[in-house]
Design a protein around this nucleic acid. Sequence first.
DNA 1: CTGAAAGCGCTTACAG
DNA 2: CTGAAAGCGCTTACAG
Lengths: 361, 361
Amino acid sequence: MPAVPQPPLNRPATLADVGRLAGVSTMAVSAVLNGARTSSRIGEGTRERIVAAAARLRYRPNAAARALANRRMKTLGVAGIVGGGLDYYFLELFNGMLEAAAEHGENMTVFTLRDWEKDADRVAGFCDGSIDGMIIVAPQWAATDARQLPDHAPFVTLHSNHLLPGVTNIESDEETGAYEMVRHLVAVGHRRILHLTGPRGLLGAERRVRGYRRALTASKIKFEPELMREAGYTGASGHKGFRSWLHDHRNQPLPSAIFCANDALAIACLEEIAAMGLRVPEDISVAGFDDAVGARTTVPQLTTVRQPLRAMGRKAVELLLERVTGPRNPPPENVVLPVELVQRASVSAPSPAPLLVPADA
Amino acid sequence: MPAVPQPPLNRPATLADVGRLAGVSTMAVSAVLNGARTSSRIGEGTRERIVAAAARLRYRPNAAARALANRRMKTLGVAGIVGGGLDYYFLELFNGMLEAAAEHGENMTVFTLRDWEKDADRVAGFCDGSIDGMIIVAPQWAATDARQLPDHAPFVTLHSNHLLPGVTNIESDEETGAYEMVRHLVAVGHRRILHLTGPRGLLGAERRVRGYRRALTASKIKFEPELMREAGYTGASGHKGFRSWLHDHRNQPLPSAIFCANDALAIACLEEIAAMGLRVPEDISVAGFDDAVGARTTVPQLTTVRQPLRAMGRKAVELLLERVTGPRNPPPENVVLPVELVQRASVSAPSPAPLLVPADA
DNA sequence: CTGAAAGCGCTTACAG
DNA sequence: CTGAAAGCGCTTACAG
């Protein structure tokens, strides 16, 4: 083994460094270490010298230089609204994205926005070559927010509140989920079912409302506007919505079950009901939606509708990657994943003795 | 307004494109749009023409090219073990990191590892120019896992299980948290306190054990090895650990309180106790650790020790950024953030009548 | 089969 | 105050 002096590099080794040490051209090193295509042209002995030199110098290809030459950063972006931080919903989507991205050797970077209206134009700015494509998680954007979308970077949307022509969107069958949950509540004996809705007007919230109403109709239960109350998607909105409903219905019959538009609302109901001194599910049943991580760490655990968030995240990455690596304009696909009823402990048959809302609610 | 034909670009506009449209050199455009330092040299009229041309072409600086020239990607990485996905703990840390990163105009990319032992060497590989520095979240790495750390990229560790010489680590004062929790339990009247521990050997778990023991000593309560049982950090380990303890102590006195090494264990205890037909806190008090999101959605809500995870995430980004932008080798800081006792409903004075473990446990 | 050259889009010295 | 040149580290044509 020749005693080649190892250059005392105070910076990451480059292809040129490796070439110098191995006594070959930069190009040959590139072919062996990074290029799958042309690597066959290099002789076996040369190849070994190159590999050894690279190992010796701990050579790592520089991602920025590669990206500049290849127009490919091997990184995908995901953008979404975070009010006060990523929540369970985003976490599960993101877990799916990370899994799929790792399988394809892609990194994921996260872009958070405070508000679509104010920040929508920043999304295009994120596509500055540091990512190859973007997943836009947009259950709550307004029609106008989609104006300034990335020009030259592929993107897909997830749970988009407005379907964009020519853009692939990944969603789940929320209406069927709501329908089946309410049918389930009816099947175990409930007829007086309060629906705490998400933000009215948002596609997802409306789909849950439609599922609720369709299930009532199918069960021959008259829809009572009094048994529907708008909340939102946050725990705080759940506390507020449920409390205001109670306040408006003092001394009137309690619902025997509550169908909440998501798990955060259901958790809020759990807390409110406990504060009233009532038991779930003995006195009142509570159902959620999403099967977010929190649904299993409540006591009692939540009966809910499982959205396949991980699978949706995975799918978003896979479809985005097709757009990044594949032909110019693959036809947009609209992917709808199925949901699933998850029965846990927060729903049971209704209490035989109907309860009243306390007078001081 | 001169009718300059807008070049129909099928790619993102470059500095050269903008320069051509504005009739100035690439360098002048760079100075005006990107360079804060030299931008003062450009005349006002020229500047306006350049800005107008850039807006017209929707110019966005290319991040890869910039990174190559600047050696600065404006992106930070975070690596951690995820068994089956990111959890609450990571989510809260990450929320803090995202906040701080956004304030500094940095992006964050996430690298997930399955196992330190197998994947530790990949960490160095992530530092390939696509990030400027790395936060390593390593509450469970072994001493040997730190061998192959990034050579040429700055990094900090968070909750590191092994303090590395010369490396900044961010942690929280877990021992004091455990101490104060146990002192609190004693203060409300408990003397027979079971400690369900985390994975023995891990720094964080040991610190909680030390806090527990120090609090007993300070309270003049004899430490009973029988009142300490190893569980782990997962809910499943909590069920198993608590059940096995009960089984080993049939017909013997129940502890009047349980101090759990984290909230997941405490939730498991809540469920086991409910299954035994006992009440929390009337029959037995339960305390957690972390104040993860699940701590507030149990019935009763958990008394726990709040770790400032968001603040720790923020701090990690800030210290890392000092290393990225600042002088070569700033002195390593070991940052210990304070924890906080959070009193909720799962702890009360002990029941006057001592209870026994059921004979069939 | 191999090597020298040009280029990816930017920035930082260096001349005029 | 301004512009032409060189370079960041890689890859992809193009000559030999």
